[in-house]
Design a protein around this nucleic acid. Sequence first.
DNA 1: AATATCCGCAACCGCTCCGAC
DNA 2: CGTCGGAGCGGTTGCGGATAT
Length: 342
Amino acid sequence: MGRPPCCDKTNVKRGLWTPEEDAKILAYVANHGIGNWTLVPKIAGLNRCGKSCRLRWTNYLRPDLKHDSFTPQEEELILTLHAAIGSRWSLIAKRLPGRTDNDVKNYWNTKLRKKLMKMGIDPVTHKPVSQVLSDLGSISSLTTITTQNQMNFVNNNTILEHPKEEQVQYHHQFTNQESFQQQYVLNEVASSTSSSCSSSLTRLSSPISYSCKTSQAQINPNFDWSEFLHNDEPFMWSEIQQIQQCDIQRVMSSLNLSGLMQNEGEISNNNSNNYNGNGSDKQGGSSEGFDAVACVASKEYEMNKQCEGNSFSGNEFVDGILDKDSEIRATFPEFLDASFDY
DNA sequence: AATATCCGCAACCGCTCCGAC
DNA sequence: CGTCGGAGCGGTTGCGGATAT
């Protein structure tokens, strides 16, 4: 028997929020702080589900949120983290100040995933589709996957639309990587034992050493994904350059994203200054009173944040990866010798 | 100008996790 | 130890604006 609904869904309002409703949420947070969302509708005078209120606050009203478009640096970070940990949007969002998991997820689904697919790169494994299919082909002798299915996959993912020269270039890059096949096998093993992205264990065999035409970055041999993800500090651009400079250049140059590798500093985090409580143009409408409430809520929120201890920081997830790390090391020691490169 | 289609994003849904009791 | 309920997460849906025909 399932859990009873959190509220009477037949009697609560759903759909887009009005500025007046937003103002009530902001006023509530200003007076009571965040938490106990099931009581929010009653106290704030809203005919909404508490869960819906929490979501509205988390994804839209929080004063520290950015409402402008993603920067190339943010795109890079999303790509890199997705390659490393998969669709753990909340973890990725923690590395992007002012962005929510919903923002990152939407951005991935609407922009980045399509770009990768158009480039002929599998957005799940971040490998060229041709390589994935090749590996799939070798595996298919043990499975029921048919050649026709593979061809459908190719056609559906528009790999053929990508300039042939670039496909060849990618193919060349990856096939030149001596241990790529080994890594792919390892990733398959990892994906079969973990719910996260198939490449979530790439840190095991650091240093990362993607083959790359443009440069051979010096990857910090001490870099550790678990350390990176345990850290709750805002993302430092220099970190990611150390992590996967080659990889980033390879992908981003093909995505035609400008201004990369230029900003060595920390991503700006002046979000609260940019906050506009009016809502998006879709939702429109506002009032001076509403702005005032938003301002007060913003200050209250900042104060509350300072009082909060460290909440979930991804430690559980990272610990899980480390557990799998040990497990797979024990099971497949031949794949994990010192010379193994990604 | 009218209609169809595409696209981005806000919001919802269902599930898991975790702490309190 | 089991149950309950709040909180959070990832996947999906649907609305509304933008663009194509």
